[in-house]
């Protein structure tokens, strides 16, 4: 049992003196003696992270939540999913990160121009260490496992990936056919390796 508990569109946080980091402005209610303060530069990731965020436009804005009590977090009625990390890395778009517990570090990773197609940044947020992360999704999250095989995902539905995964972008002949009027998928993300890919049942910007 952890500190974070996802309940539909709300995240419950139990604090007994610990500090967690949560998306700025996501607190909807709390009881007990709890302090909220800005996590500082780079969402608490330090100066280097702040600089990289500025360059990459990966806007991660977090607050530090500490004390003893019960906090409820939510964002725009999006669904909340709790993910446990055990000395692993989780790659997530900054917009989909709701909260993370102590013992986890955040950093910004450049992923090149590959994600330009979907209007997301050229960089993504990497969470590493051991602890719990709460993710946001438009509709209930779908987790797809990758274990030696491969899975193909629409970048507009992609939210996060966990584990030892390689991602490359496919824009093969079969994919060009999706380009055209309306919101066709110009690219697809191909994941191989070992891990889990998280996606939402809705396309961003659709």
């Amino acid at each position: 049992m952890g500190q974070l508990r996802a309940d539909g569109r709300v995240l419950h946080v139990d604090l007994q003196g610990e500090t967690i980091r949560a998306r700025t402005g996501s607190m909807v209610a709390y009881e007990g003696k709890v302090d909220f303060k800005n996590a500082g530069m780079g969402g608490g990731g330090g100066f280097r992270a702040a600089l990289k965020q500025r360059v990459a436009g990966e806007g991660l804005s977090l607050m530090e939540v500490s004390g003893a009590g019960h906090v409820m977090l939510a964002e725009d009625g999006q669904y909340v999913t709790r993910v446990e990390l055990n000395n692993e890395t989780l790659t997530v778009e900054a917009d989909s990160l709701l909260a993370l517990t102590q013992g986890l570090q955040t950093d910004v990773k450049f992923i090149g121009l590959s994600n330009l197609s979907n209007g997301q940044g050229v960089a993504t947020t990497v969470v590493s260490g051991s602890g719990e992360v709460a993710l946001l999704s438009d509709g209930p999250m779908i987790a797809l496992s990758v274990a030696g095989d491969e899975v193909f995902v629409d970048p507009q539905a992609y939210v996060a990936s966990q584990g030892n995964l390689q991602m490359n972008l496919i824009s093969g002949v079969s994919w060009r056919t999706f380009v055209g009027e309306g919101n066709g998928e110009a690219f697809t993300q191909r994941f191989t390796g070992q891990g889990t890919v998280f996606l939402q049942p809705a396309e961003r910007g659709a």
Binding site: L144, D149, F152, D154, A157, F178, G182, N183, G184, E185
Partner: peptide
Amino acid sequence: SKGAMIAYY
């Protein structure tokens, strides 16, 4: 329909 696919194996 174009755009309906979100993932496949």
